[in-house]
Design a protein around this nucleic acid. Structure first.
Lengths: 350, 350
DNA sequence: ATGAAAGCGCTAACAC
DNA sequence: GTGTTAGCGCTTTCAT
């Protein structure tokens, strides 16, 4: 393009640097830095010269170098169970929105319930010196490496489930954003009871997961409050929802006293049950935990206990940035309420 | 914790650096670097000393500094229309999977059809000196800043839609991964025709979008091939799908010769139409472009022309990494085929 | 086998 | 106002 004086950047194969710009504009390095950063204390003539050189060279500031120097990455890490799961992808979106406002970039990754992978990604984020981390913990969550990073000063907010055993070390501080799983489940099951059901089945994810555990608890709470005896034969939990529900569900429906209603513990369980029951005219009443697209377009519409994943993500991200901004104060656990959305499937009578 | 000799890192407030480790282990800086990078040419004694110091200090290599020095970021940027859209979130997942294998981190962002936002994020990625970019372009796509970055050596792969006008500059090279939109749409509409339909409506996103345009083209191609006259009154496009379909759809169904079938041009259109038609016994036959969760759990199941977003994401990411690895060769446009999935709604007869 | 020193591209004193 | 200089934490010759 120009003369032979842009040899530096071009022939080096890389991009123009501030030094290249300085040379081209015939000014000092710091003048370039000042112009790039909008410092007013630069003469008009020099400002112009620098801007022209920048344009000619296609210079763009290297933010990595900048951040290395400044000691802040302007980026945060987000570890989800799966970026393609509708629930988590909404959290992703909310976090992204907050990060955008804070001029922070988002590094994201999925753990897919794989503790090794989760660890690898978290440590990779930390090695990049992200300002902070938002994490959906694995269960059980390996705790030592997290504590090491926390001690080193990395801020973390946990989302969807807590990490037990981390707060016994007062030198580390983390926050947690949860849904009111037990309360929401209780509301959903009470709704079924209010519509006359007494034989209510419960299908969930692995019962040892934090969320499932609490939702089953809420289910039992509702039964107890209504004086309905808890029947373990009506509860089924499995890790691979889609594959494992068919048999138990069929068996339950073939009981002498079959359930007249089903409470499903999460998105995937609801969908799996719905699939099994497609086209059955005697379909039991259904209330699902967690809303999903098209719940309203089914016939009948599917009544759900809705979480608010956008609010969860936003809350977690805002909390993280406030902490990064220096907000002190004790560890916080924020529990978000749920909303019962009536669409028909939960209002059927026995 | 230990003695007063870790003053450096601790009191500086930051993390331990290699220099801290070197001091603590009583070795030179480069020896630490060698140990950290698994160089074999270090005596056992020193290796041990370094490893111990690393453990004591909780040292973790700063990858940003490393990459600055090495001139490669080991990260790629991904710009999607929306991370929470099921279609794009699957692309996100596929890209993530490839990046994982390549030991590259993923910076992700959503444009939400906002050209300004898209530009901001792409430039932010470039300022971070990502190794490459995978982009869902805006329409129309502002081209100048992309070309500037391409000239500067940034590799880009476009996904879901092409960027016209970029290839008139032979100094820049980009690749593109698309779905066979026209072919898929044609297949879907031909399927309806094969089942006896001749009045087939078409509901899509904004008609000027690349994907919608080609799907409408495919729709018309199928009609022409069957000798069915094209009736513009049966085609409706709108940008806000959910809000704007109700009126036109009702109007069409009230026609003297109403459509007996509907072809919907994307995920959101299908869902919107389904919502409008919920509970109507005389529902027209429906074929939708793009698959969606629960399409099989509706009654009847929804017949779709399925794209393969996972394959799109994987293809784009692998192409990008091959380019980054030095693969030369001309610009590539890879078009992925579609699959017709029969579920009932498309097999209804008039 | 090991350490000293230069430098990746930037910012922030510090002098002038 | 402006340039010089010293790092941020790392890798990488280059001597030794």
């Amino acid at each position: 393009m120009g003369a032979g004086d842009s040899i530096d950047a071009d022939s080096r194969g890389g991009r123009a640097t501030m030094r290249d710009v300085a040379a081209r504009a015939g000014v000092g390095l710091s003048t370039v830095s000042r112009v790039v950063n909008g410092d007013v204390n630069v003469s008009a003539a020099r400002t112009l010269a620098v801007e022209q050189a920048i344009a000619e060279l296609g210079f763009r500031r290297n933010d990595s170098a900048r951040h290395l120097r400044m000691g802040a990455a302007s980026s945060i890490g987000l570890l989800l169970e799966s970026v393609s799961d509708p629930f988590f992808s909404l959290i992703n979106q909310a976090v992204e929105e907050v990060a955008l406002v804070r001029d922070s970039l988002l590094l994201s990754a999925s753990s897919h319930q794989d503790a090794e992978r989760a660890k690898k990604m978290v440590l990779a984020f930390c090695a990049r010196r992200v300002d902070g981390l938002i994490i959906t913990p694995s269960e059980p969550q390996e705790i030592d490496y997290l504590r090491a990073e926390l001690r080193a000063g990395v801020r973390m907010v946990f989302i969807d489930r807590p990490v037990p055993g981390l707060d016994d070390d007062d030198s580390v501080a983390t926050d947690t954003v949860l849904t009111d799983n037990a309360g929401g489940a209780r509301t959903g099951v009470e709704h079924l009871i209010a519509h006359g059901h007494r034989r209510i089945a419960c299908f969930t994810d692995r019962a040892d997961l934090f969320t499932s555990h609490h939702r089953i608890l809420g289910y039992r709470l509702a039964l107890e409050a209504a004086g309905i005896p808890f029947d373990p034969a009506l509860v089924f939990s499995a890790d691979d929802v889609a594959e494992n529900f068919a048999g138990p569900l069929a068996a339950m429906l073939a009981m002498a006293q079959p359930p007249t209603a089903i409470f499903t513990g999460n998105n995937r369980s609801t969908v799996a049950v719905l699939r099994q029951l497609v086209g059955r005219p005697d379909r039991p009443a259904i209330v699902g935990f967690d809303d999903f697209e098209l719940a309203d377009a089914m016939t009948p519409g599917v009544t759900v206990v809705a979480q608010d994943p956008l609010a969860m993500g936003r809350t977690a991200a805002e909390l993280l940035f406030r902490r990064l901004g220096g907000e002190a104060g004790p560890t916080q656990t924020i529990t978000l309420g749920t909303t019962l959305i009536r669409r028909g499937s939960g209002e059927q009578r026995p």
